Amino acid sequence: MTEASCITDQGLLFINDGMHGGQVAIDTSGNITIPEAVPAGFEGKPKVEATSADGKYWVGYAMDKNGHLGGLYHPLLWTDGVPEVLPMPEKGFREQELTTGVMARGISANGEVAYGTSWENYDFGMLYWKRNGNGFDAPQWVGKDVREMVSGVWTRPDGREYEYTYVNGIICQAWNTQVSPSGKWIAGRYRKEFDPETEQPIDQENYAAFYNTETEKTIIVEDYGESGGQFVTDDGIAFIGLGTLGVTTGKVYDLNTQTDLGDTADWAYDTYGIIIPTGYINYVSADGKMAFGTSASYSVGGISFIKWYIAPPLEKEK
């Protein structure tokens, strides 16, 4: 067993099986199940990435029957343990034919909005699905209002030419906690690859970005330079990690007023009245009583990342 993947409010814990692939699920009574069921036409063991709070819905992915000889990853949704395939986009993030596929990465606590990634090379294009009755609509790109592309034949510094489509848009890697509890907001990273005015490629720029699934509008936060959106609450309080690699510090930002609310430690002290290490917030529960975060620990061997949580104390048994 290598790492915990996700857990429901009822305590059903999914743990990755690093030896045999796939996962095992363990409940609070110690019962073990293996979520191996996949729809017809798929093979191999699926991966559950996230669940709704009540445990009714799970999302993840599996590869179709062609396997690694040309198969595609497909996003999956389990309802009460029964899997189905979520709709796939017609094209990839750069409007190319899909060659690797799409993975579902997360789902809102109420099960109404799921999101995932277009796993084509290093595109990491972020898309989402909204529930419509008993099913989900076709996927849309997160930040579709700010997504733009330019295609052409470009020249490398050594004079060689190449054909490529550059995209300014919102990306997501293997991140599982980017959607607010009701699905109103989705956090991500706006990656800028070209100058819209000159339509020429530039050195990549990355900024925290937050997409409202109700208004279908994006707020890009450039105030902190290189950064990424870690999480956002339903009422628009955004949590930002500074930098893009080895993130160790964070900021809190009000999307409603587009104002800075201070460092993560300041926000934690103002909200919960406790002192935490510097770091950033990964998730806040719908009622605001619990928060999960990440901090860095420095030693001779380098940097290690420590996960921590804030929660009310457990009541002692009487």
Rank of each mutant, 00 (worst) to 15 (best):
A208C: 01
N16V: 10
E112I: 12
G293I: 01
N134L: 15
D266N: 13
H20L: 09
G293A: 04
V167L: 03
A291L: 07
W58F: 12
L242R: 06
N31I: 14
S151A: 06
N282K: 07
L245W: 15
V38T: 12
Y298W: 09
W154F: 03
V102E: 02
T28C: 14
T33P: 07
T155D: 05
K65T: 10
N206H: 06
K192F: 01
G229Y: 01
G236N: 00
I7R: 10
W129N: 06
P46H: 07
R191Y: 03
G67D: 12
A187N: 02
V247C: 04
K251V: 07
S304P: 06
T155M: 08
T51G: 10
T28R: 15
N110G: 03
D223V: 13
I7L: 15
T271P: 03
K65N: 12
G293W: 01
W58N: 08
Y162S: 03
E97T: 04
Y269H: 13
I281D: 09
G125C: 06
I186D: 01
G135Y: 06
Q96L: 02
V300S: 15
H20R: 10
N121V: 00
G22C: 08
D260C: 12
I310V: 08
P312W: 00
T264E: 03
L127A: 11
V113C: 07
N206Y: 07
V300P: 12
S180W: 07
R189S: 02
A268S: 11
S52H: 01
G111Y: 11
D17H: 06
P313D: 14
V82Y: 03
D287L: 00
V146C: 08
L12R: 13
W58E: 10
D64Y: 05
D54C: 09
T294A: 02
N206R: 11
A268K: 10
N256I: 09
Y166H: 04
T2L: 06
N134G: 13
F239V: 02
T51F: 13
Q23K: 05
L245G: 14
T28W: 14
V300E: 15
Q178S: 10
P277Y: 04
E36N: 12
V113R: 06
E163W: 04
D158R: 00
G70S: 09
N110C: 02
E315H: 10
I170C: 04
T215Q: 09
M103V: 12
G246D: 04
H68C: 14
M290N: 05
T99R: 00
K316G: 15
A50Q: 10
E148C: 11
Y224F: 14
P157Q: 06
T218G: 03
D158Y: 00
G133R: 02
Y166K: 03
D80T: 02
H68M: 15
K289H: 06
G92K: 00
Y283T: 09
D123I: 00
N282C: 06
P89W: 01
A209Q: 02
G250M: 03
S29P: 13
T165H: 06
L12E: 14
V59T: 05
F210W: 01
I219T: 11
R156E: 10
T2H: 05
E36W: 10
N206W: 06
